[in-house]
Nucleic acid binder design. Structure first.
Lengths: 195, 195
DNA sequence: GTCTATAAGCAGATAGAC
DNA sequence: GTCTATCTGCTTATAGAC
């Protein structure tokens, strides 16, 4: 296996995506060159263009893939139960899903400004879909008397910001297990929307 | 005043900082060139180096200045009153201080990874000082029975993440005044740390 | 599908004239 | 203090050989 040229399409594509994800998350999209990605993968820079039209498409594809996964996984949670049960499920899901893929999360929050306008709008719309799902839970809870919320739009953004913040400090080898982290945050979220 | 060369040291320095702040916030540190900053200011690129040793120093100076201002303004709040009063003061201060300088806030959160290791450690230490101030309030409130908090370290990070999130959507021309936003968040923060 | 070579241009930073 | 000119090296992306 010492050959340095030939056909590897089945593994090179995913390896490019993994390398780009890692490097973009660590150094930022603008700070990473196609040559760096190629070096990480073990090919020459020109070979990358067999898998992506250009650097921008590579970024967009990573972000799009992440948002699609997020929405699909969230949809699989279902809508059963009381607003309180649904909010707890959302809280625990958000924390664990985001903790599982810190690099994709980081890119999807930090590199919005690196997207061309068309691509930006697509990602923004997906992000809004996710926020709307939480807002629906909060509104249902308000209507049924489960929650007391002054402004459901703000509460939605406040809860998501609080939960996403876990990614800035959580490490699986840290003081608390993910289950404990979920419990602490669920307590705080629950109290913040009830009297 | 049609001259295009000469001495302008008293105004050029601040103008460079303002242009860099604006451009770094909008496009990111790595995506902005010294030539772009110079064009924005109305000088040639070489002239920038009369005011900054290099691009990295310019970024660090902006972030350092922001953190120093933040800590000085927070110190001026004082430590009077009950933990609840102090937490309310912190909440309102954090929101209004950050709403007043969205570009510096954005840079200080997004460009940490663009700092060289030495500079990163300095900014990180200042950020930790600020977090510690909030954690002290929470711990005092726990000790006195004002607050019920499972994990004060996590609660500190959760509250700061929630409050800083305001900057991602707040616009002074928006639906709510800053005072109303502060009130909504104070309600949520207060409830999240009390039973 | 990957390679090498290259096009065309921009990057950070400096030197020396004024 | 600002200018112009320049050094050196890197950038994205493409062309054509294998």
């Amino acid at each position: 296996m010492a050959r340095t040229t030939g056909s590897h399409s089945e593994i090179t594509g995913p390896r490019i995506r993994e390398a780009a994800l890692r490097l973009f998350a660590r150094h930022g999209y603008a700070a990473v060159s196609m040559r760096q990605i190629a070096t990480e993968v073990g090919v020459q820079a020109g070979a990358l263009y067999n898998y992506t039209a250009d650097k921008q498409s590579l970024l967009f594809s990573l972000m799009r893939g992440h948002m699609d996964e997020l929405l699909a996984a969230h949809a699989a949670l279902g809508q059963d139960g009381s607003p309180t049960a649904r909010l707890e499920r959302f809280t625990r899901f958000h924390i664990s899903f985001h903790a599982d893929r810190p690099q994709a999360v980081f890119i999807s929050y930090m590199e919005l400004r690196s997207l061309e306008p068309n691509n930006f709008q697509i990602i923004e719309a997906l992000r809004r879909d996710y926020e709307d799902a939480l807002e629906s839970i909060l509104r249902d809870g308000m209507a049924g008397g489960d929650f007391t919320i002054a402004d459901p739009k703000i509460a939605t953004l406040a809860v998501i910001a609080m939960l996403t913040g876990v990614n800035t400090w959580y490490r699986s080898a840290g003081r608390l297990s993910l289950e404990e982290v979920e419990q602490v945050y669920w307590d705080m979220v629950h109290r913040s929307v009830t009297e």
